[in-house]
Design a binder for these strands. Structure first.
Lengths: 193, 193
DNA sequence: TTCATTTTTTAACTTAAGTGAATGAACAAA
DNA sequence: TTTGTTCATTCACTTAAGTTAAAAAATGAA
């Protein structure tokens, strides 16, 4: 099971056997049932999550409505926010499906960082990469219509629509469920897809 | 002049005199004329910028049109993307006004990191904080109308509208200049502001 | 299976952004 | 000063999303 985690990390830097062993010893892999809420808004952040199997969703609640801010799956493996030492979560995170994830923990992370200083560099690279990706997504979002956003999602994350309720996709795209339904109809008719 | 930089860094961690001296020795403060293009899309990233005085703007060009992705001023002091070792810029960066900025440099940064390992931690904290902020902005953007975005910008970055051409603000808000003009008229009439 | 709940679709209507075109204002260069 | 350019505003028209409401379909639990 830890192999998923090794593969992920080794995209950025090779791991020594000693490091791998240390990671296994951390015992950070957990299973959660569909619907489990991993993080509540305002919680002290416990570290990052990495999805090994399943799907997590981050969202916030505005005027009683859930606004989905992200979906995290095997192919989009990394997660919400690492967070400074005592920062608080801005979003909820819940399981869209039964999921297996690695779960961070601040003490453990600190300890590991001290033992393997290379991991700090690793976190920096990952964080910068996430930032860069997010800036790019934001720019794309600004400069496209809801329909284009839907088509992009279909292209870039095929399968997500099969796994996630449509109204959650809609709020992720920044539109109402009715509009998404309309868009799907339009797209189907025009054979744009 | 370096004091701006010290103040910025010391928001995150206190600096020793030795570190301060090392920073001064780096000699990384530069002035640029309004209109100067600091980064072109596709350039190898040279490191971060920090605005001491003036205003930078990041943008990309889609179908011949400039799409503004960010404004960086004294109050929003930090910048585009640090970038992995050989990553390339996704955006242009230019000076909206005559500006004084600190300019990174990869060799220098690497050297400084080695001499002062604490700086790696600093970069990690900054990067995570930027990521967090950006995730929050993105979520807000998704869940608000163009008019609300305009009002938010007016509230959160007063003065920006006086410093930057309106059509650049418009593309930053993800709308056309005509729409921004309409929104301003609407807002002025309804006394929403 | 049945019933209740959630999710998705459809429709009529309202609202606001996009488009294309024209005008006026501000600004810089010759 | 004149000229050309860029920028902001306005208008008429088109397009699509929001809103409200209702119905249909899918899902899950008793």
């Amino acid at each position: 099971m830890e192999n998923y985690l090794f593969d992920f990390i080794e995209q950025y830097m090779p791991l020594t056997e000693e490091e791998k062993k240390a990671i296994v010893d951390l015992d950070i892999i957990r299973s959660f049932k569909k619907g489990t809420i991993l993080v509540k808004e305002g919680d002290i952040i416990k570290g990052g999550y990495l999805v090994i199997k399943g799907c997590l969703r981050s969202y916030c609640i505005v005027d009683g409505e859930e606004k989905t801010t992200g979906f995290y799956t095997e192919t989009v493996p990394i997660v919400p926010v690492f967070g400074a030492d005592d920062s608080r979560a801005a979003h909820f995170v819940s399981c869209v499906e039964d999921s297996i994830v690695t779960v961070g923990n601040p003490d453990m992370e600190k300890e590991t960082m001290e033992k393997f200083p290379r991991f700090e560099k690793l976190c920096l690279i990952i964080s910068e990469q996430l930032l860069e990706k997010n800036l790019a997504s934001f720019a794309d979002f600004k400069n496209s219509t809801p329909e284009q956003r839907y088509l992009d999602l279909l292209k870039n994350r095929p399968g997500l629509l099969q796994r996630v309720p449509q109204h959650q996709i809609a709020s992720y795209l920044g539109i109402k469920p009715q509009s998404l339904s309309r868009i799907r109809k339009r797209v189907a008719q025009n054979g744009t897809v």
